[in-house]
Amino acid sequence: DEKYNFSIRITAERVSMKYSARNIVSTRSERYDQYGHPVYREWIDINDDSRFKVIPPGVNTRIFTQEPQPHDHEIRNTVESALRSHISGDRHDLPWIIASSRLDPKKNHLGLVKAFASSKELQSLANLVIVTRGVDVYNNAFGAGKVEREVISEIFDVIKTENLKEKVLFLNIEGQKNLASLYRLGAERNSVFALTTFHEPFGLAIIEAMACGLVAVATKNGGPSEILQENGIEYGILVDPIDEKDIAQGLLKVLSNPSRLMELKKRGIERVMQRYTWDTAAQSYLETIKEVLNSPCPIHPPEIPDYFLGTGEPPALNLEEFFKENPQERGQKP
């Protein structure tokens, strides 16, 4: 609580949700799983449809697009140089399994690396590319933060033990435009995007990658389950992040089946353009605002804690009591 100010943040959320006309969430999972936590009990009824609206965020399609961009050649040169330096020559033309999220244990890079290590077939079909975003693993790994260094160290232990040095590439790619260029280059060689987080609230990185033509293989926990499947239609592959064999099998489902990969690639782009653009999100917000204005509800003056009005002490919630009630939630943000 001292580090993340949970008491202040949760108190602000509870007051806002109690007195709002609508509560906008990015996924159904956010509505039922996050706000169904006991810490929000008595403040919001998650089963009241009139109080919730699911409006997912959108992709910046001016950046994340399958259309080639002028600066793509710069990233192509960077990647080709890195391949020559760190990947064996007979593997230069293989597809990639791209992992691009912050180096944090919760993002489960280690599970992905272990899954890659567990399957010789997978290794024969693709190289694993880990985007480090500001960390030069090969020349200055000690320049990373403590948590990042720990994640990198664990990955290197697996690489060394399983003899994966010339099959795993670390790329220091920074900025959205450069990341989108990498995704487009990956799509050219029928690569996949992997997000094996233990739990992902929404999954913006997934739809950014899909917009550029990558097929997504992602955690089944959280928002990705709603992005990649709907009404029995598959837009990517969902995997169990704590099951390395399932991760490997999920990757093989597309990398070993070109026709399925191309079908999911096509569906993924259409899915993003139809549902996950900022134009679509803005239209949904406008429609929701009009609904509220056309159906006025009784106004109750909100009871706002003094702290948020500039006076009084900050709220201090007994979060341990809530975690005791739901022990499986311990260690996670409610």
Score class of each variant (00 low, 15 high):
5 N>V: 00
7 S>D: 02
7 S>P: 03
10 I>M: 08
14 R>P: 06
15 V>C: 10
15 V>T: 15
19 Y>E: 08
22 R>K: 15
25 V>I: 10
29 S>L: 01
32 Y>S: 09
33 D>M: 05
40 Y>Q: 10
40 Y>V: 04
42 E>K: 13
47 N>T: 12
54 V>K: 01
54 V>D: 04
54 V>I: 15
55 I>Y: 02
57 P>A: 05
59 V>L: 05
59 V>M: 07
61 T>S: 09
61 T>C: 09
62 R>N: 14
64 F>R: 02
66 Q>A: 07
67 E>D: 12
70 P>V: 04
70 P>A: 06
73 H>K: 12
77 N>T: 14
78 T>N: 14
78 T>Q: 15
84 R>H: 13
87 I>M: 05
89 G>E: 15
91 R>P: 08
94 L>M: 14
98 I>E: 02
99 A>V: 06
104 D>L: 08
111 G>P: 03
111 G>S: 09
114 K>Y: 02
115 A>T: 10
116 F>K: 05
119 S>L: 12
120 K>Q: 14
122 L>E: 06
123 Q>D: 12
128 L>Q: 11
132 T>C: 07
136 D>N: 15
137 V>H: 11
137 V>S: 12
138 Y>P: 08
140 N>Y: 07
140 N>D: 15
144 A>L: 03
149 R>A: 07
154 E>T: 02
157 D>N: 14
161 T>S: 14
162 E>N: 14
163 N>M: 05
170 F>E: 09
172 N>L: 08
173 I>L: 08
187 A>H: 06
189 R>S: 07
193 F>T: 00
193 F>A: 00
197 T>V: 00
198 F>P: 03
199 H>L: 04
206 I>G: 00
206 I>Q: 00
216 A>W: 01
217 V>L: 01
218 A>F: 00
221 N>W: 03
221 N>Y: 02
222 G>R: 04
225 S>C: 02
230 E>T: 14
232 G>M: 09
234 E>A: 01
239 V>S: 00
240 D>N: 15
254 V>T: 14
254 V>Y: 12
256 S>Y: 05
260 R>W: 06
264 L>S: 09
268 G>L: 01
270 E>V: 00
271 R>K: 15
272 V>S: 02
283 Q>H: 12
288 T>E: 15
289 I>A: 11
291 E>H: 12
291 E>Q: 14
293 L>Y: 04
294 N>Y: 03
297 C>D: 10
299 I>M: 07
303 E>T: 14
308 F>C: 10
312 G>R: 11
315 P>V: 08
315 P>M: 12
318 N>P: 06
319 L>W: 11
322 F>V: 04
323 F>Q: 09
326 N>F: 10
327 P>V: 11
331 G>I: 10
332 Q>H: 15
333 K>G: 05
